[in-house]
């Protein structure tokens, strides 16, 4: 229950405070968000499997975000930022889909 409240509070804060994204962060924020989403869905699946561990979640969340940002940063330095961003998004998207599929099987047994 507390995590759901946290999520809502975060969204509300973002909508109401409405800060502008710093220019340096602009290329990384979308990738970081997708990476974090991947971590969240993975956590949800683990929770439904009954193997959720908050320490694992925190580490996977942070490392997902950091690695995604790092890959994009590296891509930018190499001049292939756009392509690498696409690659990261694709990989994370596949992972999110498989996690969601597992969650669906848990909830609907189908």
């Amino acid at each position: 229950m507390i995590p759901v409240i946290g999520l809502l509070v975060g969204i509300a804060a973002g909508l109401f405070l409405d800060p502008s994204v710093p220019v340096a962060l602009q290329p990384y924020l979308p990738i970081a968000v997708v990476a974090a989403l991947d971590a969240v869905f993975g956590a949800l699946r683990a929770y439904l499997d009954g193997i959720f561990d908050d320490k694992v979640f925190v580490i996977s969340f942070v490392s997902n975000v950091v690695i995604a940002a790092l890959i994009v940063y590296l891509g930018d330095q190499l001049g292939v930022g756009g392509q690498l961003s696409t690659g990261v998004i694709v990989v994370l998207g596949i992972r999110i889909f498989s996690n969601v599929a597992a969650i669906r099987r848990h909830i609907f047994h189908a």
Partner: peptide, 25 residues
């Protein structure tokens, strides 16, 4: 367990914040 939940909530709050900010931007 409570502390774990609070940490998870914190991270989710950060995620929600980032999503909202990014969508707005």
């Amino acid at each position: 367990k409570v502390r774990g939940q609070v940490i998870v909530a914190l991270l989710l709050a950060v995620l929600g914040f980032a999503v909202a900010v990014q969508v707005r931007a």
